[in-house]
Structures are given as structure tokens and as C-alpha cells.
Design a binder for these strands. Sequence first.
DNA 1: GTCTATATTTCGATAGAC
DNA 2: GTCTATCGAAATATAGAC
Lengths: 207, 207
Amino acid sequence: MAKKKTDNQSEKAILIAARKVFTQKGYAAARMEDIAKEAGINRALLHYYFRSKDRMFDIIFKERMNEFFSGLAQIIFSELSVIDKIKAIVEHDIDMVIAHPELPIFIMQELAQNPQRMIDSAQGAGAVPELMMKKLNDQIKAAVQANRIRNIDGAQLLINIMSLSIYPFIAKPMIKTMQNLDDTGFNRMMLKRKREVADFIIDALMP
Amino acid sequence: MAKKKTDNQSEKAILIAARKVFTQKGYAAARMEDIAKEAGINRALLHYYFRSKDRMFDIIFKERMNEFFSGLAQIIFSELSVIDKIKAIVEHDIDMVIAHPELPIFIMQELAQNPQRMIDSAQGAGAVPELMMKKLNDQIKAAVQANRIRNIDGAQLLINIMSLSIYPFIAKPMIKTMQNLDDTGFNRMMLKRKREVADFIIDALMP
DNA sequence: GTCTATATTTCGATAGAC
DNA sequence: GTCTATCGAAATATAGAC
């Protein structure tokens, strides 16, 4: 039963393989042959299921964009305090990139090649980005008025949180070399960093 | 005199073009034809001067790596105070990425594809990374003892500075869309951010 | 040194048998 | 649905004229 049909097993295997290869190598360097081999099937089948490399890439890219951004909105719209949201976003982002280390470079590299993808994606999300920023800024304003934190622009705060959480994984080869770490050591450092990043941001916001 | 020789004008034009095309598109997506067209010459000349795409890329990549890292060492080894070094690194990094916005993604993407490049480069620099970190950590220790700043690991501090300065440029398409900015607006925001990032870091370090 | 023409290889895509 | 074989386009690299 390694052959024939019924089951959409091959399609699933292809999607898993495509996700891996595209994410690791990027669109331009990814080869249909790589994906087929990774999926354990023939190149022709890729076209049977997905017609072209471009269409396959579109599917994978949208999926990965969603993976990258969806957690953030959920936390922002939750009822946590500002401080707890900072902690939650750092926790979420670092966990995400430990689980998917190549995701940030993949997303950012492909967005740089085709920024329109970001605009399309934002429109697909309706007014979510605007609502998110409003929710966050309102909450910051309240906390500032109660003298719980210093004033800061919500957008800048988000950029700071994501920078501190995600950039180290983008610069991973650099950090591993300079700190003389292997993959295990790097991940251990990043797990420890969760706490340090949250504290660092919170310290900077204390009045 | 648009033709014939003597002058190494063509070689220079090719290097400039290669730098631009490789940095914007990355190795895999860059085409020899793109580079030739950008340089205003024929594809065959690229091979005459540089033999292959790989050799050309090596030259450009090393050059750009150096461009990316050289400023940092200079500041670390200077005689500025810790606080002034933080300001100087932020200033330097943000200026650098405003001048060369595609540099960080280029470096990080290609390093991810071939981490060995980082190791080679670090060896080429001798013991510079180690010396750099020692110098910084000693200076931090002294400042902590004098109660001028809180304790922090030098490596973590450097990661934080570079994250806050460089990541926004890696995430540029994302930020432009979410903040509804054009390129001018984005750069204006980043220039303003110089001060904010330095303050943010320094606030987090105040005892 | 520079160009045109062409060789060579690689890759995405399709045809057709099973 | 899956495979083998092959087409045709694109991309790197080289040969050879000027």
C-alpha cells in the first residue's frame, strides 16, 4: 500500500516537505527536486497537486506569515495588564523562534523581495492591526496616568519587544560564533534570555 | 573611448553592480545578466574578470561582512565610557542601516545558508571578538562597582543594542505597513529612534 | 578588453504509460 | 495517483572574432 490513492497522504507529505525546504532555503534557492526528495515522492507529483512552484510557495508563505503573527494579536487583545502582556509576548516570541528558528529570516527575506505580500496580508486581516495598536496605546495611556509606567508609543514598544526577542535568532550564526556556542548552548541562552528581556523592557519603563 | 582597455573602469563598474544586485536579491536570486546590465557591460566580461558567480559573490560577501562589523570593534576599543559607547553604537548602527538598508537581511540570510562563513571570518579577525568582549565586560564590571550602572553581561548588552538598532530595518516592510509609512517616513522614524533606543537601554541599566 | 555566439547544465513543467 | 521520459526555458560558463 505504498502506492495508489484515496488517502491524501501524498499531498500532506508534500506540504510538510515544502514548508521545510522553502523556509530553510527561501524561494529562489529552493528546488522542486529538494521538496520531492524530502517528501519521498516524484517531482511530477508536485505539479499534479500544486501545478507550479509559485502556487506552492504562495500557500506555504501565507501559512507561515500567519504562524508568525497570529499569536501577537491574541495576546494584545487579551485582558492582561501592560506588564503581563510584555512578558507574554516575549515568552511567546522566543518560544516560537526556538521551535521554528528559520522562520524570521524566511519571512523577512521574502517580504523584502516582495513587500506587496505584507500589504495583501494586512488587508486580509481587515482592521486588525489598527485595532491592535489602538487597544495597546489606550492601555499604555491608562497605565501612564496611574503612574505605573513611563510614557512610550505603543508601536515603539512593540518594535522593541520583537527586536529583543527575535533578532538574536536572525543573528544566530553570528552569536554562536562570537560566544562559542553550539545549538544546545544557544537555545539554553535564549531560554534564559526570556526572563532577562522581559526584565530589561520593564526596567526601562519603570517611572 | 567607451571601448578598449588600460583603465580598470569595467572591473570597478562590475564590482559596484555586483554589490548592489547580490545585496538586494541574495546569491540564489541574483542573475549574472542583472549584474552585467547594471554595470552596463556584457555577461562575458563578468567571467573574464571574476571567472565565476561564486568567486564574485565571495568577494562581495567578505566586503559587506566587514562593512557590517568593522565599526563595532572600533567603538568598543575606544576610550569612551560605557554609556557613551552605547550611544555611539546605536548611532553607528542606525546610520549604517539607513545608508545600506538591505545589508542586515543579506548578511543574515547568507550566513544562515552557510554558517561556516562566520567562523572563517572570525578566524580571519584573529582574537578580536574575544578581546572585544573582554574589554567591554571589564569596563562594565568597573562601572557596576562604582554603582554607575546595574550589572549585565556584555554579550547580552551588545545583543540588545544591535537588536533594537538593526531589527527594525529587517522588519521594515512589516513596520511600514502597520504604521502606514513610506520610505521617507520610515527613515524619519528611525532617525528619531536613535535617541529613543539609547535612552531605552540606558534607562534599563540605571541602578 | 569587449563583444557575439554557443556550449553545458540545471530546473520547472508536461506527456503519457501504468 | 504515481511514475519515467522528455521538453523547453533559463542560467552559468566558454570559444572565438575583433
